[in-house]
Nucleic acid binder design. Structure first.
Lengths: 248, 248
DNA sequence: GTTCGCGCTTGATCTAAGTCAAAGATATGA
DNA sequence: TCATATCTTTGACTTAGATCAAGCGCGAAC
């Protein structure tokens, strides 16, 4: 049913975020040379599983293009998405062999991977890599904690508004903003995936999106293309304080 | 209403977890010497706030004894606990000035603190510190993600069972286990704090604890002293798979 | 000892979100 | 073109947990 991932060519990773953002922001050229020997690229189609929870994981890597999700599943099938990986986000944990979560390609996906052992070795010898990784991990921890507030205390409507504003904030196309506060983007998630992220059912997601549309908070073109006429209004609906959830 | 924290004496931190666990597991003696110059100790009473979200935070540190909680609060007062800090857990973020969450002493608390600037400087020059901090942060991230499943998908009863098994697992007194699987510990949280951690109301927490008692999953002596006759049964009630939520 | 206060329990009722069910959009492929 | 499948919407009904409202138990202060 699912195809094997294909190996992508290095050219597809000209702007590899690991190289330029995660690891090597302050690296010396000779370190980049080392990097080239241990990195490779993988492509996945929407819906493919990158790795199953519990599987042995002999690489670490980061998202180049597309979106991946981390999900946890209980024996009875209840599932909770615990992370949304956008381009430049890091996957995998140096020092651990097994994957802790299912990683699934939510859209078509290109990842930039490093064989784990050499990566760990490189980390030992390159302090900046560990520092950069610490910084990224702390950002992820903050995101996870922000999400705990969403899951634990927000209403269904606030949850939807929170998700929309997070996607909008991280989506590059938000540069269509302009002075008006208007903002346009495409939802990269099905209603079911949104439900899994928000701890809701897909029916409730659908109803709340309809309600936000009815109330003029968002406009929809098709199922996925969203226009937010007033981002401040959306953030109010999300129950965030006026700074929009940006951390100091 | 709240007292100022008092400075504790170094003697109270003979087994300082930062020194022995977080930072200096592999440090050289001269590095320990440097450490001594920038670290100090603070004591708080149960209920005192260590730091408010948004405040300037000029230290990092870790819990020596007692329990602290990280909480987020919305304007209308809804609050969600996003982390429980037990002895040896680290607080604060190198590279950021403001606190992201309220930190509150849940029980009487002793913390071991480091002035931030010198700590950051030391981190630059001591790779093991960054590595150890990365490891700890990844552990916290895993804990946060495990908690997202609890908040998003578990029933009230499963939430209570999950919290009890987490506290039991981390509580030192669980060494009273023995071969029987019986396990005894004290709850370090009020019903309200449990509710804030679990995304429930305190009434629901109370009802579910009563129900678990009625069903023989736990026994209570007073409000806080808990006996778990069969830890496997508790984990089943938590909806965890048989490995008890331990990561590979 | 009595009274206060706080943390906790329990009951009655309400409601937001879940469940079950049907049907409307799009897209894919024969 | 029509059949099939997936994703989505909407409606009717149910329910887990919230809300509102008494009280209980127990230590601290008088």
């Amino acid at each position: 049913m699912l195809k094997e991932p294909t190996i992508a060519t290095p050219q597809e990773c000209a702007d590899c975020p690991i190289r330029h953002r995660a690891v090597c922001a302050r690296c010396e050229p000779q370190e980049l040379g080392l990097l080239e020997e241990i990195k490779y690229y993988r492509k996945f189609e929407a819906g493919q599983t990158v790795i199953w929870a519990g599987d042995r994981m002999d690489f670490v890597g980061s998202v180049v293009t597309g979106i991946a999700s981390l999900t946890q599943t209980m024996e009875d099938g209840r599932t909770q998405m615990v992370g949304l990986l956008l381009p430049s986000d890091f996957v995998g944990r140096p020092g651990r062999d097994g994957a802790a979560y299912d990683v699934v390609a939510t859209t078509d996906l290109v990842m930039c991977c490093f064989r784990k052992k050499p990566f760990e070795h490189m980390m030992e010898n390159t302090p900046h890599i560990a520092h950069r990784l610490l910084e990224m991990t702390l950002d992820e921890l903050d995101a996870a904690r922000e999400w705990m507030l969403v899951l634990g205390r927000k209403t269904a409507r606030e949850k939807i508004a929170s998700l929309l504003s997070i996607i909008a904030r991280r989506d590059a196309t938000l540069r269509q903003v302009g002075m008006t506060g208007t903002l346009v983007f495409d939802l990269p998630l099905t209603r079911e995936a949104m439900a899994d992220y928000l701890g809701l059912t897909l029916e409730t997601v659908s109803r709340q999106i309809s309600a936000l549309k009815r109330d003029g908070v968002i406009e929809l073109e098709g199922k996925r293309h969203v226009t937010v006429p007033d981002f401040v209004r959306l953030m109010e609906e999300a129950g965030d304080d006026s700074d929009g959830g940006m951390l100091a």
